[in-house]
Lab assay of single mutants.
Amino acid sequence: VTLFVALYDYEARTEDDLSFHKGSKFQILNSSEGDWWEARSLTTGETGYIPSNYVAPV
């Protein structure tokens, strides 16, 4: 499992996005959609889309 960590805070703009804070960790579920990845937050357990340029591999 590849884990990613948030580099910045992000406020969701749609109900499909995940809001998160810098330092939040994610499991990436689908990275084939270009700049928006489907991810599960390891902090909240919620699933949604995150901007790929806001995260980096742990």
Rank of each mutant, 00 (worst) to 15 (best):
T47I: 14
E11T: 13
D16A: 14
V1A: 12
T44K: 03
L42F: 07
Y54L: 11
N53M: 11
E38N: 08
T44M: 02
F4I: 03
K22L: 05
S52Y: 08
Q27T: 10
E38V: 15
P51T: 02
R40G: 01
V55G: 01
T47W: 09
K22P: 03
G23A: 03
T14V: 07
N30L: 06
A39T: 01
D35N: 09
W37G: 00
H21Y: 13
L42T: 07
T44A: 03
K25R: 12
F4P: 00
A6S: 05
N53W: 15
K22F: 05
L42Y: 07
S31F: 15
Y54G: 05
E15C: 14
T47Q: 10
S41M: 11
A6C: 03
W36Q: 06
S32V: 10
T44H: 04
A56F: 08
Q27P: 00
E33C: 14
R40W: 09
Y10I: 01
R40Y: 14
K25A: 08
Y49A: 05
G48I: 04
K25M: 15
K25F: 15
D35R: 08
I50Q: 01
I50G: 01
I50L: 07
V55P: 00
D16K: 15
L42A: 06
S31E: 09
E46C: 10
N30C: 09
A6Q: 01
S32D: 11
D16Q: 14
T47N: 05
N30F: 07
P51W: 07
P51Y: 06
D35A: 11
F4V: 11
F20T: 00
E15A: 13
H21D: 09
T14F: 15
Y8C: 14
E33R: 15
F20H: 00
E11C: 14
L18Y: 05
P51H: 07
T2A: 12
D16R: 15
Y49H: 07
G45Q: 06
S32Y: 10
R13M: 12
W36Y: 12
T14L: 10
P51L: 08
F26V: 03
G23I: 02
E11I: 13
V58E: 10
S32W: 10
S31R: 13
V55Y: 01
N30D: 12
G48Y: 04
S41N: 15
F26Y: 02
D9N: 08
Y10C: 04
S31G: 09
E38K: 13
P51D: 04
G34N: 12
A39I: 04
T14Q: 10
D9G: 06
S24W: 15
S31Y: 13
S31C: 15
N30Q: 08
R13W: 07
L7A: 02
E11F: 10
L42D: 04
Y49I: 09
S24I: 06
T43M: 10
Q27F: 14
G23L: 03
N53I: 09
S32E: 11
L18H: 02
D35V: 10
T47M: 09
A12G: 11
L3V: 14
I28F: 03
Y54W: 07
E11P: 04
T2Y: 12
S41A: 09
R40A: 05
Y10L: 02
K25T: 12
V58P: 04
W36C: 08
T47K: 09
A12V: 02
G34Y: 09
D35G: 12
G23D: 05
R13C: 13
E46S: 07
P57E: 09
E38Q: 13
E11M: 11
S52E: 03
T14I: 06
D35M: 12
L18D: 00
T47P: 02
N53K: 13
V1F: 14
V55L: 12
T2I: 13
Y54I: 06
I28P: 03
R13F: 08
Q27A: 09
L7K: 05
Y54F: 11
D35W: 10
G48Q: 02
D17W: 11
H21K: 15
E46N: 08
L3D: 06
S19N: 06
W36L: 07
V5N: 02
N53Q: 11
F26Q: 00
D9R: 04
E33L: 14
Y10R: 03
I50C: 04
F20I: 03
D35K: 09
L18G: 00
N53Y: 10
E11H: 10
E15P: 13
P57G: 05
E46L: 11
Q27K: 08
K25D: 02
E15D: 12
F26M: 06
F4H: 06
T14C: 15
T43V: 11
S52H: 07
K25L: 15
E33A: 14
T2D: 11
P51C: 09
F4D: 00
E33G: 14
V58Y: 13
N30K: 09
S52K: 14
F20Y: 01
L3P: 05
L3T: 09
L29N: 05
G34M: 11
K25E: 09
L18V: 05
G45W: 06
S32L: 11
H21V: 14
L3Y: 13
W36D: 03
T2H: 11
V58G: 05
V1T: 13
I50N: 01
G23C: 07
F20W: 01
P51R: 07
D17N: 10
L7R: 03
R40N: 04
S32M: 12
S52L: 04
V1Y: 14
I50A: 00
S19C: 06
G48S: 02
A39M: 05
D16E: 12
T14D: 11
E38D: 05
I50W: 02
G48F: 04
P51N: 08
L18F: 10
W37D: 00
L29V: 08
L18Q: 03
Y8A: 08
A6P: 00
S41P: 01
A56E: 10
V55N: 00
A12I: 02
G34L: 11
S31Q: 13
V5W: 07
A56Y: 09
K22G: 03
S31P: 10
L7S: 02
G23S: 03
E11V: 14
N30A: 08
V1D: 12
N53F: 10
V1C: 15
S32Q: 12
G23N: 05
F4E: 00
Q27I: 15
A56Q: 10
D9V: 03
S52I: 06
V1S: 12
V55D: 01
G45L: 06
K25S: 07
V55T: 03
A6H: 01
F4Q: 03
A6V: 01
D17I: 12
D9P: 06
K25Q: 12
V58L: 14
V1K: 12
Y10T: 00
L29E: 05
S31V: 11
I28N: 01
S24V: 10
P51F: 06
T43Y: 09
T47D: 04
W37Y: 09
E33P: 10
Y8K: 07
E15N: 12
F20K: 00
L7H: 02
R40L: 13
D35E: 12
S19V: 02
D35T: 10
Y8H: 08
I50H: 01
N30G: 09
Y49R: 14
R40F: 13
L42I: 12
P57L: 09
Q27C: 12
Q27L: 15
E33M: 14
A39C: 04
A56I: 13
S41D: 14
T43C: 12
P51Q: 05
S24A: 14
G45E: 05
T44E: 03
E15M: 11
D9Y: 04
Y54E: 01
H21F: 13
E11K: 11
K22R: 11
D16Y: 15
G45H: 06
L29S: 05
D16C: 15
L29F: 07
T2W: 12
G23F: 05
E33Y: 12
Q27V: 15
T44I: 02
G23W: 05
D35Y: 15
S32G: 11
L18I: 11
L7E: 03
T43K: 09
F20V: 01
Y54P: 00
G34E: 12
S41Q: 07
A6W: 02
Y8W: 12
S32I: 10
F26A: 00
S19T: 09
G34W: 10
Q27S: 07
F26D: 00
P57I: 08
N30W: 07
R13V: 12
L7Y: 03
S32P: 10
E15R: 11
I50R: 00
Y49C: 11
H21C: 14
V5E: 09
